Computed example of a mutant assay.
Amino acid sequence: MPHLDIRLPMRWSDTDGYGHVNNAAMLTLLEEARIRAFWGAPDEQVALGAEVLPSALPTFDGGSSVHTVVASHRVEYGRELPFRRDDVIVRLWLSRIGGASLTIDYLVLTGEDPDGAAPYATARTVIVLVDEATGRPTRIPAELRGSLARFTGEPLRFRD
């Protein structure tokens, strides 16, 4: 299945009094992975060494008249994720490309389980593309839809 593995450092502030990643911090990890995967760095930051991923889409850069907003999140926790000094791996892919929306599925993993047999969390985010001027949803252009198709995979199954 096509996917992107985004490696993220864990911050001490991501953990709570119980010593594991707080539920709100988990959403921040997912956000960081989503931004790194799909939003390209500005040219001046690339010139200074910013990472350029092949998944970065020009429509999501700062100069675009199209913006994205989060429509929903769903997170299911498989087990506690304690503080780690090695990177967390957020595996993500698009499970649905709608008319004006994208559904991003995630597995939160570590190097001990790179195949995702026992993810720390499974999650889904639905984002909607909106026109900056009107704030209304805007259809995903055909050329962008084609670029996105290479990152599509099977949707996750969640507990009922």
Rank of each mutant, 00 (worst) to 15 (best):
P54K: 12
S55N: 09
S55A: 14
S55C: 06
L57M: 13
P58T: 02
P58S: 15
T59P: 01
T59V: 15
F60K: 05
F60S: 07
D61L: 01
G62W: 14
S64V: 06
S65P: 03
S65V: 06
S65R: 14
V66F: 08
H67D: 05
H67A: 11
T68K: 02
T68R: 13
S72Q: 06
S72M: 02
H73S: 07
H73G: 03
V75H: 11
V75K: 06
Y77W: 12
Y77T: 04
Y77M: 07
G78C: 01
R79C: 08
R79L: 00
E80P: 04
L81A: 08
L81S: 07
F83P: 02
F83S: 04
R84G: 04
R84H: 07
R84V: 05
R85S: 13
R85M: 14
R85V: 12
R85L: 15
R85D: 13
D86T: 15
D87L: 08
V88E: 09
V88I: 15
I89F: 11
I89P: 06
V90E: 01
V90G: 08
V90H: 11
V90F: 04
R91A: 00
R91M: 07
W93Q: 09
L94F: 10
S95Y: 00
R96D: 14
I97D: 00
I97C: 01
I97M: 06
G98H: 12
G98W: 11
G99A: 15
A100G: 13
A100N: 03
A100W: 09
S101M: 12
S101Y: 06
S101D: 08
L102N: 10
T103Q: 13
T103E: 12
D105M: 06
D105A: 09
Y106V: 05
Y106G: 03
Y106M: 03
L107M: 12
L107T: 03
V108E: 02
L109M: 11
L109H: 08
L109P: 01
T110V: 10
T110P: 08
T110K: 08
G111E: 15
G111F: 03
D113S: 03
D115H: 10
D115C: 04
D115T: 12
D115L: 10
G116K: 03
G116T: 05
G116S: 09
G116W: 05
A117C: 01
A117Q: 14
A117M: 03
P119H: 10
P119S: 05
P119Y: 00
P119V: 02
P119R: 08
Y120W: 11
Y120E: 07
Y120C: 11
Y120V: 00
A121Y: 09
A121E: 08
A123I: 04
A123H: 07
R124D: 05
R124E: 10
R124V: 06
T125D: 00
I127N: 12
